[in-house]
Design a protein around this nucleic acid. Structure first.
Lengths: 342, 342
DNA sequence: GTAAATCATGCAATCGATTGCACATTTTCG
DNA sequence: CGAAAATGTGCAATCGATTGCATGATTTAC
């Protein structure tokens, strides 16, 4: 049914040369070994027949498919689409395509989907996982498959990784709150089995120490998911504890939005009575009132950076040649959800 | 460098049979032609060696890659991620992977990316484009490549398509506004070169006729993009025209949000003075005040439906066997941005 | 003017899995 | 018991492109 594709053989027949000659004439590197005139003729024939190389066949022979795998937890999480576009902006112009899979942060899925990618002979993988450990991707890298991780460092490996400077972000935010006069600062932390959750909590503690702010352990509540519902629950828990606080530094925007919602319901004015901050600067934030003060992380930029590193690996550079660590700067975005301590 | 993959040949050597026998033992369909005992042994060997079939090689031979292409305008547009998950929810369990490309609604990109997909031998394509016409995808379908379009019907072709019942949605929304007593109803239409923009405007006119509502052409403003900025611009234009209106039916949520923003700035109360409605029911809408009354379309469901149809095409059913048209029901979601006519 | 070097092209193997056909062995049945 | 049928396995071609090597033609060099 499918209309027959034009192959090298067709061009060879058409031009009266051998397929290997055709192959060479069409390969920019090998072309120079062919008479100019013949090459021209072959190219013309290829063009007029509408030849398109069969990457499957080439891939079988060369072991390069010009396809990369991208593993993310969940594409419906707004932070990932910009990352994907960032990756694409680097790889697509060079002829790479991306197979994207959602792991839902489940280890089983991750293992299975990794196989899905390897079975298809992807040339490399960008892994934007969030689980704090996973041996499968490490072992894939061990086998020689180029891998770059995003948002997370794989311990004890020489897999290059790209992360945002979360430490600096949390620290800047805490300093911002301190400068506004807040001293009783609560933290709604993210899930501790996710690297961002854990990282940001650790950063919060460190930042507090750096800024000589005492950390009241009762003012730290850990969410089980990064969503509004959990943000709400955590804030209710904070209120119920009876401990006073004038600011809440949340581990991400959605937690903050949930928290603000509860404050509103209880008639507590944000930012007049309690300041709330987020992290990530997700899209549409400026449509939600009060506009959230947050930390902007580079999403597109992170994707781009990861893709650029992967590219170097694909071109034969080893993990020794590239920087193992890429830390992207973040930016404090002060909007309306923070105000001086009452 | 890359650790050698186990191939059929390795298993054959290990078990002392021919590769073709191994191949058959590992193929659930062919397995029955092999002695039970031999098959068991081969499977055990495959298992213990950690064999993974090379889909590239199989794909070359069989012309099936178990990979599909998905073309969307822009993954950062919040309506697409759920569609992708919907597609994935059907195809992934069956062993399919998806190559996703962003066309940015540019014809050149679309043509190029279609080739990117075909070069990689995708078994089929789900095309969630928005341009009102494009010959390339039609010609691909003509060549026998299974194609399903989403959100748009390709004229003069037998390509199956999945759409949401936009007509019904617009009509229900208009009826809702009429029931609230509104008679002077403006429409902020989407870009007319995008199918949704055009479709919804046509639906608005039709619905008005059905409901015996006069359409004041001066109360129809066409946006050039589907975003808040354009929504704002269009509302300003409406206000400037001097024509009175008590409700604005917008072609999508973002236009509506932009419009509401302008109303707020001008001190016009929504919904007390002017009702505003959206379309799509995008995520996070319930975090934005006033909560937008809108039409919920099935995103995940649309992806699922498209994938199911594609699957039938992949399994050899022709366009004659499957329904060319799938129209998914929409749902009116009444929130806070609409109120009785003042 | 001939040997050597250079160049353009063809040949054939290869990547790994699939599959039609042939062959050998076993089973069935008259 | 012998021929026919059924069964299990091997052989080899195939998918399309790539590439090391061989070959023949041409140029260069002495």
């Amino acid at each position: 049914m499918q209309k027959k594709r034009i192959t090298l053989k067709d061009i060879a027949r058409e031009t009266g040369v051998h397929v290997s000659t055709v192959s060479r004439a069409l390969d920019p590197v090998e072309r120079k070994t062919i008479t100019e005139e013949v090459a021209k003729k072959i190219q013309a024939a290829a063009e007029s027949l509408g030849y398109r190389p069969n990457r499957i066949a080439a891939g079988l022979r060369t072991n390069r498919t010009m396809t990369v795998g991208v593993m993310i937890p969940d594409i419906t999480n707004v932070i990932f689409p910009p990352i994907l576009r960032g990756i694409e902006s680097v790889l697509e112009p060079l002829g790479y395509a991306s197979i994207i899979v959602n792991t839902d942060s489940e280890r089983d899925r991750e293992i299975r989907l990794l196989d899905v990618l390897r079975d298809r002979g992807v040339d490399g993988i960008i892994h934007a996982a969030v689980l704090r450990s996973d041996p499968s991707i490490a072992s894939a890298a061990q086998d020689g498959l180029p891998v770059v991780t995003l948002n997370r460092k794989v311990e004890d490996s020489d897999i290059p990784y790209v992360i945002n400077d979360e430490d600096a972000g949390i620290c800047q935010m805490l300093r911002h709150l301190r400068e506004l006069g807040h001293t009783r600062i609560a933290h709604i932390a993210g899930p501790q089995d996710l690297s961002t959750g854990q990282l940001r909590l650790a950063a919060f503690r460190r930042a507090a120490e750096d800024l000589d702010t005492e950390v009241d352990e009762n003012l730290i509540v850990v969410a089980t998911r990064f969503d509004e519902q959990e943000g709400a629950r955590c804030l209710i828990e904070l209120l119920a504890s009876g401990k006073t606080f004038t600011a809440v530094l949340c581990a991400n925007d959605r937690l903050a939005l949930g928290a603000i919602e509860v404050l509103r319901e209880r008639g507590i004015d944000c930012p007049r009575q309690v300041s709330v901050t987020g992290f990530n600067d997700m899209p549409f934030l400026d449509l939600i009132r009060p506009k959230l003060t947050t930390v902007r992380i580079q999403q597109h930029g992170a994707g781009r950076a990861a893709a650029e590193i992967l590219l170097r690996l694909l071109n034969g550079e080893t993990a020794d040649d590239v920087d193992i660590e890429t830390i992207l700067p973040v930016e404090l975005v002060i909007r309306e959800s923070t105000a001086p301590c009452p």
